[in-house]
Design a protein around this nucleic acid. Structure first.
Lengths: 149, 149
DNA sequence: TGATGTGTTACCGTTATAGTAACACTAAGC
DNA sequence: GCTTAGTGTTACTATAACGGTAACACATCA
């Protein structure tokens, strides 16, 4: 299976906030860029706020801003904020047969292996910050500019 | 979301085959250790065979054997065999707004980042072979032996 | 020829997800 | 104070993936 698109949307949202340079952006506006519903954006913003990555101001003129500098937020932070479950790999649905030597011990071994793999993934995500992402977005924009209209 | 338990079951199955030392094991037998239905095992065996990791002999007295030495099969091979879709991370469901500078370019940037992360995960899985897994299972068994009955 | 076992298909219930709408609550500005 | 513009949260729906289950055609051995 795949990691939900929440991660992609979260990075998208945070990048937008970064371009906002401190002015709060509304979920409605961001939904326009992500091309989805404002509620979906707010649902993800709720996770990001809970993780301390964003801060919202309620009421008229309100919106959301980054809670820390973009260079201090890694993609790992984002990943952990929106894919909360902790374990990337599922083990067996039913406990394996304890009377089989393999069944009795395989899960402990699998747990070590999958934890290591997940750690490698998170380490890699930790190498990239939101600032890097925005820089790449800008660079990408220079190579393939807006379509003429 | 999480990676399906197919991976865990596949590693379990292959470890069983490894202990079989060349004699074919039946899906019924393996299902007993995994604690699931024989059809589930056969479904996964089908993926493993397609990836060239196992070979089956049909008919009475048949069953499945490893197609190569356990030391020549890494967890990455297993992962790629059963999680075929290729892309671990989902991107946006709907294409982002092309009239937004971020929306227009974020997917290319995300694709690079997620591909790197998935690569790190697969690299880590590639460090461990089925032979390692069996060795760890055996070692684990020495530390927590079978429950007295 | 019968027994055993694979490979595949179909179906079902469960779960996660994303989209959508609704509503209580909050804050700003006139 | 009232209105307007937002957030935060909940509920509902449709869709898709998954695992469990059963069934059946086909292959092979004795």
């Amino acid at each position: 299976m795949t990691i939900s698109s929440r991660f992609a949307v979260a990075v998208h949202i945070l990048t937008l906030l970064e371009t906002g340079r401190g002015e709060p952006l509304t979920s409605e506006y961001m939904a326009g860029s992500v091309n989805t519903n404002a509620s979906v954006v707010r649902r993800i913003l709720s996770l990001l706020a809970r993780a301390g990555l964003t801060r919202a101001r309620m009421g008229a003129g309100g919106g959301t801003v980054l809670a820390r500098a973009a260079s201090e937020i890694t993609l790992r932070d984002v990943y952990c904020a929106v894919e909360c479950e902790g374990q990337l790999f599922a083990l067996h649905h039913e406990k394996p047969n304890p009377r089989c030597p393999v069944g009795r011990n395989i899960q402990a071994v699998l747990e070590r292996a999958t934890t290591a793999a997940q750690g490698a993934l998170e380490r890699e995500l930790g190498e990239r910050t939101l600032a890097d992402v925005l820089a790449e977005v800008v660079a990408e924009g220079r190579e393939s500019p807006a379509p003429a209209r």
